[in-house]
């Protein structure tokens, strides 16, 4: 591990000022991903600015029935929060489907959003990876890619990248239209969850649209007011990343889909908002046929790799099954 200086910031403004002054620094939250990447030589910050005491560890009520989640709230506490369990079950379920009890106790909400891909070529410094070492190539494209992306990849050129975003929580926050509150050297801004993460495009080294020195301070959840659910398919029942996951919320009125929010995990470089499926669902009868047509509308754009074509029917079936479960009794 490269040597680094350790700084502890007591508030968000001083954390931002400390990091903005460094060219190769990083914020440290729970460290469950960053410390691991430092051990592997994938992350090599010269300065760590510890922000676990710089942002809130509280979840507070917003006037519209929504919630504001402090960036330092541990994943375990957020999953167990009664208001989240009752009003946003999709978020509790997503958090509880991720990692282990030990990791959820230490990992923070802000840090969960900023975790890096678990692509085996990214985490092995002896392999080519355009995300870790731009221009070195993509080992996964023709290599081991059974659990890689099927949507929105960059399949040729210097930006080639087929990695997925690993977070379960972020998939739920995408379906919930969360707003990420960010403090930077130029002040505060609010980033819609859909705009926080990037597709690889020409530059897979950048996972997010955050600028140097910007710190996530809180996550706002607008009121939801409809049933929601998270489902995750993985190789084993617990403590494994998703092959495909889904966060869904749907409202049915008189047998017709009045509103639907869908996001998929394990399929792309970012949590994948299934806008085409949502569009195809609205105003349609809440039937298995409609749900299948919506899934097909979304997955028409899929470009699976040699060994991950199974994810396309898996995602389709997961969309249909989850919507059927969510609408049981209203159809």
């Amino acid at each position: 591990m490269r040597e680094f200086r350790y700084e502890r910031a007591t508030d968000a403004a001083s954390a931002v000022a400390l990091l903005a002054a460094e060219s190769d620094g990083a914020f440290l939250g729970g460290g469950t991903n960053l410390v691991d990447l430092m051990k592997l030589g994938v992350a090599t910050p010269g300065v760590l600015v510890d922000v676990r005491r710089s942002t809130s560890t509280e979840v507070i009520d917003l006037p519209d029935g929504g919630l504001r989640i402090g960036a330092a709230v541990p994943n375990a506490d957020l999953a167990a929060d009664r208001r989240v369990r009752e009003r946003f079950p999709v978020l509790s379920q997503a958090l509880l489907a991720g990692a282990s009890g030990q990791l959820r106790n230490r990992a923070t909400t802000g840090g969960n959003l900023l975790q890096r891909t678990r692509c085996g070529y990214f985490t092995d410094v002896t392999r080519p990876c355009n995300k870790r070492a731009p221009g070195s190539g993509c080992g996964a494209l023709e290599g081991v890619h059974r659990n890689h992306a099927i949507l929105g990849q960059t399949l040729e050129g210097p930006g080639t990248c087929v990695a997925t975003h690993p977070s379960d929580m972020a998939v739920a926050l995408t379906a919930l239209d969360a707003v990420i509150r960010v403090l930077g050297p130029d002040g505060e801004r609010a980033v819609p969850m859909a705009d926080l993460h990037r597709l690889p495009g020409e530059d897979p080294s950048r996972d997010t649209t955050l600028r140097h020195g910007e710190l996530i301070t809180a996550i706002d959840l607008p009121a939801l007011g409809m049933p929601s659910r998270y489902r995750k398919v993985r190789d084993r029942a617990s403590f494994a990343f998703a092959l495909v996951s889904i966060a869904a919320a749907v409202r049915v009125t008189d047998g017709v889909v009045a509103d639907a929010r869908l996001a998929l995990g394990g399929v792309a470089h970012k949590p994948w908002r299934a806008s085409a499926a949502e569009e195809a669902l609205r105003g349609r009868p809440a039937t298995e046929e409609s749900f299948a047509a919506a899934a097909d509308a979304e997955l028409a754009a899929a470009t699976p790799l040699r060994d991950n074509g199974f994810k396309v029917p898996l995602a389709r079936n997961l969309v249909v099954r989850t919507l059927l479960q969510l609408t049981e009794g209203t159809r």
Binding site: Y6, L28, T32, V35, D50, Q102, L103, N105, R106
Partner: peptide, 27 residues
């Protein structure tokens, strides 16, 4: 494993279980 995957290093930190291999002592 020293990577937070096996749990052999689990300790209680202020009463909460964590993987001590992923916690920097300075923190």
């Amino acid at each position: 494993c020293d990577h937070g995957q096996c749990g052999a290093c689990t300790v209680l930190l202020d009463g909460r279980r964590v993987n001590s291999c992923l916690v920097l002592a300075v923190t």
